Amino acid sequence: MNSSAAPSEAHPRFAEALRELGLDVEVRRFPEGTHTAAEAAAAIGCELSEIAKSLVFEADGLPVLVLVDGASRVDVELVRAELGAEKVRRAGADLVRETTGYAIGGVPPFGHRTRTRVLADRGLLEHEVVWAAAGTPHTVFPLAPEALITHAGGTVVDVREKSA
């Protein structure tokens, strides 16, 4: 398995975002793809919580990106309260692609087609490095969570479901 690659392995839009931000990160490509956080963690050899999921929700009709660790689920009610929205739900595949320019399973935390509000769950900060999609279900990159949240323009909040 070829696990090291140049940023050219990333989705072209995301590779351009990396250049614009002056970020030199290692983009890893996995031939079999990593469509879920669990598949990505297994391929990388890291903890599930070290995967940064980029999830798009629809809040009163507007897209919002939520960054959360791979071991956690987003509490939609906490997102709703954070945004002061009436109604929040997971965005459909069309809205995800329209908003970000990427397909579900490959959405990176930044480098999107449009500027959207970004909420980043505080749990990401529990790690030295997190791994996020690099624009495709086959590519990931590592970054310190603080830098990832900053580049995404995220606000640190508590939006993950509390464990029982």
Rank of each mutant, 00 (worst) to 15 (best):
R160F: 11
A5Y: 11
A93G: 03
T155D: 06
M1K: 12
R122M: 02
A133E: 09
A164G: 10
A15V: 02
L18K: 10
A17Q: 04
F110V: 08
A52W: 00
A85Y: 09
G123E: 14
D60K: 02
F141G: 08
L48P: 02
G135L: 04
V159M: 09
L65I: 09
H127L: 01
D121K: 13
G61R: 02
A6K: 14
T99M: 03
D121G: 09
F14K: 09
A10I: 08
E32C: 11
A120L: 07
A71E: 12
R160C: 14
T34G: 07
K53R: 02
P31I: 09
F110C: 10
A38R: 10
A91W: 10
V118A: 04
E82R: 08
E98I: 06
T136L: 07
E126G: 06
G106F: 13
A38T: 07
L55M: 12
L67F: 11
T116D: 01
V27D: 08
G92D: 15
A85W: 05
S8W: 10
A144E: 15
V88F: 11
E126L: 13
K87S: 13
V66C: 15
P137W: 06
V74E: 11
D94S: 14
H11L: 03
L18A: 03
V68P: 06
D60N: 05
V130Q: 03
A164L: 12
A120W: 05
L67K: 11
F110S: 08
V140W: 13
C46R: 06
D75H: 11
L48A: 04
I104M: 13
H151M: 09
A5W: 09
L48D: 06
D94H: 12
E126W: 06
Y102M: 04
V79D: 06
E9R: 14
